[in-house]
Design a protein around this nucleic acid. Structure first.
Length: 312
DNA sequence: TAGGCGTGGAC
DNA sequence: TGTCCAAGCCT
């Protein structure tokens, strides 16, 4: 039997929607693969609830699953409901965040818990627009929580799904640097009609990108839609266009901020300036990094040249 | 909209 | 070793 293939979309902005039968083939095969290969992750279990899903989504932003797992377990154990976290000082959230990286996420998650407690009676809202209004929740996370926690029908367009669609449908190795309107349109076009299948498709296509259709060393031999993949059928052409933006780190303010915050996380009493000065030799950059942390609300300055994680 | 924002594992 | 990468958000 010959499986249908997806023609490359030379211009996804103007091409017609993908045909229904083909989309159904993709859904069936990717969801079938997911049924056999999905990882058993704690936030996918029913007992995780919407709060567990939401916490996991914050932690997983730009952060690998393996590093999230232990922090997630401790977090949910300590703060099983949004109101539990809302009662804490924001600095405690930053401390519990540990070395997950991007600690502003901890501050925003705390802020979201406060907003949920004040505006939504302590329950994670189910409406996409209400989720989007919470701090730290953007287009992706709102769709993910609504889909994974509440079974709704949303295009869940993360980096994994974008890569899967770029390859399988558009026929290129990598998606654009920033999410485009064409990608959103394509994702909506491919969304299954009914809520339950759409939610399943969202989780399954993400998992395929995370485990098989990876950025490097993709494993087409294990891919359930390899027979339809436009990129593979085109001979897996190399990436064209502007180089993908790399992240520099060594010597940046980010590195200095990380070192400063590490000292404050480990301290349970206010820290004198002199102790912070030891993390970085260059005084101008050091001061700029500390000022930035204060401006972001990650560090609270006290009289007498003392600093601590924020109490309010 | 391009760039800032942490951290550590893989190759 | 250095480079790339990991379920983004915000300004």
């Amino acid at each position: 039997m010959t499986a249908p293939t997806l023609p490359p979309h030379s211009d996804p902005t103007t091409t017609a929607p993908a045909p229904g039968p083909l989309g159904e083939t993709l859904h069936t095969q990717v969801i079938g693969w997911f049924d056999d290969n999905a990882r058993d992750l704690p936030w996918r279990r029913p007992e995780a609830g919407a709060w567990g899903v939401m916490v996991s989504e914050f932690m997983l932003q730009q952060t690998p699953v393996s590093r999230v797992l232990p922090v997630y377990e401790q977090w949910l154990s300590r703060w099983p409901r949004p109101a539990d976290l809302a009662k804490e000082a924001p600095g405690e959230a930053v401390r519990a965040w540990g070395r997950l990286g991007y600690p502003r996420r901890a501050l925003r998650l705390h802020g979201a818990a406060v907003a949920i407690t004040e505006r939504h009676g302590g329950d994670v809202p189910a409406e996409h627009a209400q989720l989007l209004a919470l701090p730290g929740i953007g287009e992706y996370t709102a769709a993910a929580v609504a889909s994974f926690a509440y079974g709704q029908r949303h295009a869940v367009l993360d980096t994994n799904v974008r890569r899967v669609l770029a390859r399988a449908v558009t026929g290129v190795r990598y998606p654009p640097n920033a999410t485009t309107a064409a990608e959103r349109r394509l994702a909506r076009t491919l969304l299954p009609e009914d809520d339950r299948t759409a939610a399943r498709w969202a989780a399954a296509s993400m998992e395929l990108g995370a485990l098989v259709c990876t950025a490097k060393n993709e494993s087409c031999a294990r891919c359930p839609i390899a027979a339809h993949c436009a990129w593979r059928l085109a001979g897996k052409p190399e990436h064209e266009g502007p180089p993908r933006r790399g992240q520099t780190y060594a010597g940046t303010d980010r590195q200095v901020r990380g070192k400063l915050l590490a000292v404050l996380r480990d301290a349970h009493t206010p820290v004198p300036q002199a102790l912070l000065d030891r993390v970085w030799h260059e005084p101008v950059q050091r001061a700029r990094a500390l000022d930035g942390l204060v401006a972001d609300g990650l560090v609270e300055p006290l009289p007498g040249g003392l600093y601590r994680l924020p109490l309010t």
